[in-house]
Simulated assay, not measured.
Amino acid sequence: MEIRSDLGQDFVFVRRPGLYLGGYFGARGTSYGRTGLTFLWHPDAGTIVHSLNNNNQGCWGTVRANGVPDNAGDQPAEYFAGEPGASHGRGGTPGARGRSASATAPPTDRSARR
């Protein structure tokens, strides 16, 4: 798992032998951006799911009861290393509604390497 952070936005990449998954969480830079999971790639099938910006039909998300998808707004996220409940979280607000991911190694932040 790799996390790249910039200007309140987290770009998350998870690579496993059978898939490659990307996500964009945090504050949206403009009203055009759509947060959440952005692509799912499989080595045999290629790109299975791909989200688009600037519309509510071409994005990967959950439509709320009010008809607006959750990815048409900011999505705080928390990231964890190790067992659930461990205190290795990074980003987001504890208890806030958002997405979470688990990894077997601590998260990395490449923003300082630029």
Rank of each mutant, 00 (worst) to 15 (best):
G61F: 03
P84E: 07
R28L: 04
S51E: 09
C59Y: 01
G91Y: 04
G33S: 12
H50M: 13
G58D: 12
N55S: 13
A27M: 14
Q9T: 15
P17L: 09
A81W: 14
I48Q: 10
L52T: 11
G95A: 11
V14I: 15
A81E: 07
R90K: 05
G98L: 05
F80P: 00
R110L: 11
G67C: 08
W60L: 10
R114C: 01
S31Y: 00
G89K: 09
R113C: 03
R15L: 11
G29A: 14
D74M: 06
V12H: 04
G92L: 11
R4S: 13
A86P: 04
A72T: 06
N55R: 09
H88A: 06
F13N: 08
G85H: 02
E78M: 15
P69C: 03
A65T: 12
S111F: 13
R15E: 12
T104K: 03
V63W: 01
T108S: 15
D74K: 07
F11W: 13
R110N: 04
N55G: 10
R16F: 09
H88L: 08
C59S: 08
R113Q: 07
D10P: 00
P43I: 07
S87N: 12
A27R: 14
F13T: 14
R99S: 10
P106M: 11
D74H: 14
V14Q: 06
S51V: 01
G89I: 01
W60T: 10
G73C: 02
A72N: 14
L40Y: 08
E78F: 00
R99D: 03
S51Q: 15
T62A: 07
L37V: 13
T47K: 06
G58V: 12
R15N: 15
R97K: 08
G61P: 00
Q75H: 03
G33L: 09
E78S: 15
R97E: 12
A77F: 04
R90M: 04
A77Y: 05
R34V: 05
Y24G: 00
V14H: 04
F39Y: 13
R113N: 02
G23K: 01
G33Q: 15
N54I: 01
G23P: 08
N54C: 05
P17K: 10
G95Q: 00
G23Q: 04
Y24K: 09
I3P: 06
S51I: 06
G22F: 11
N53I: 04
H42E: 14
S87K: 01
Y32M: 11
R97A: 12
D74E: 12
L19S: 11
F11A: 03
G61C: 13
D109L: 11
I48P: 01
P84F: 07
Q9G: 07
G61L: 00
G33V: 06
T108R: 14
T104H: 13
T47L: 04
D109R: 13
N55V: 02
D109K: 03
F13S: 11
F11Y: 15
I3H: 04
